[in-house]
């Protein structure tokens, strides 16, 4: 009896130790975030001061105000929001329509077209950068929002993702709606889309974050300083005002904020979607 309770107590201690150890690893992992914020809040002289200061001597909260208004990170933030938001809206709209056609409409060549769509998923984005830029250039859309938005808003992944989800909605619901007199568009809008909000939310989230974090494409298309998205804006200051590390860190913090907030708020949705991948990998 005594050995048993002893081993139970030992197991508990081991569990606690286990948590503490991983907690330390996690803290270490979070250090770059801490370092970024800590440097965003100090004077530039303190950034590379020797000896290294872990915390600022004075917390300069108005660094963020300066970054937002004077260095136009406010403008960059807005640009990023417009680009990511527009791409997300277009992607969801286009994917709903095409996903529905693939899931529920009969037309000649459907399966072949679907396979072609799947095939395009194999092509890495960086391969298309050059011809895409040439197309945007010939359309006269270099340094415009449509130029940076349109070429990345028609990915085939959304069509495929929503098709898969739409297929899981009972066919009889749709047939009932047809007998009730609904057109295909009405069925999509009134029945399918409201019932597919988890999938549409997921597509929106990953499209938005993907574009928010996208760098190479806006770097190439947005040649004007004012039109830069946040990541592009950050690198502009890296080269032009390489010494203003505190403001750059403040800008980096701003650029990371939406992703971090979404990752925390929507952790269940994200986990479930990745778990789905894990499950599919197993099939």
């Amino acid at each position: 009896m005594t050995t048993r309770s002893k081993s139970a107590g030992g197991a508990l201690a081991l569990q606690i130790l286990n948590h503490v150890a991983l907690g330390l690893v996690a803290l270490l992992f979070l250090f770059p975030f801490f370092w970024m914020v800590s440097n965003a809040l100090r004077s530039n002289a303190e950034v590379l001061a020797i000896p290294v200061r872990i915390l600022p001597s004075v917390f300069q909260w108005d660094n963020f105000a300066v970054t937002w208004t004077q260095l136009p990170f406010g403008r960059f933030f807005l640009n990023s929001l417009v680009v990511s938001g527009s791409v997300t809206v277009i992607t969801v709209f286009v994917s709903c329509l095409s996903g529905y056609a693939f899931a529920r409409l009969k037309f000649p060549g459907r399966d072949a077209l679907l396979m072609a769509y799947l095939g395009t998923l194999m092509v890495p984005a960086i391969m298309l950068i050059i011809p895409l830029f040439l197309i945007v250039n010939s359309l006269g859309m270099v340094n415009t929002f449509q130029g940076v938005i349109l070429p990345v808003a028609f990915g085939t992944f959304g069509s495929f993702l929503l098709r898969q989800f739409f297929l899981s909605i009972p066919m009889e619901l749709e047939e009932a709606a047809r007998i009730d007199g609904a057109s295909r568009l009405r069925i999509l809008v009134s029945i399918i889309v409201p019932l597919s909000m988890p999938a549409i939310g997921l597509l929106s989230l990953f499209t938005f974050i993907g574009q928010w974090n996208n760098f190479l494409w806006p770097l190439i298309v947005m040649t004007g300083a004012d039109n830069a998205t946040l990541p592009v804006g950050l690198t502009q200051f890296q080269t032009q005002q390489g010494t203003a590390w505190n403001y750059i860190m403040a800008g980096a913090t701003l650029s990371m904020l939406p992703g971090i907030v979404l990752a925390i708020i929507l952790q269940k949705l994200i986990y479930n979607s990745i778990a789905l991948n894990a499950g599919m990998g197993g099939r």
Binding site: E172, A176, A177, R178, A182, S190, I191, L195
Partner: peptide, 28 residues
């Protein structure tokens, strides 16, 4: 189907899950 002057009751009932009973009946 809508031009045939018919109504249909399905085995699974096929009620729209996101609509109330009233909205289900009023949809058509």
């Amino acid at each position: 189907p809508k031009e045939r002057d018919i109504a249909m009751v399905f085995q699974s009932y096929a009620l729209y899950p996101h609509m109330t009973v009233r909205d289900n009946m009023a949809f058509a």
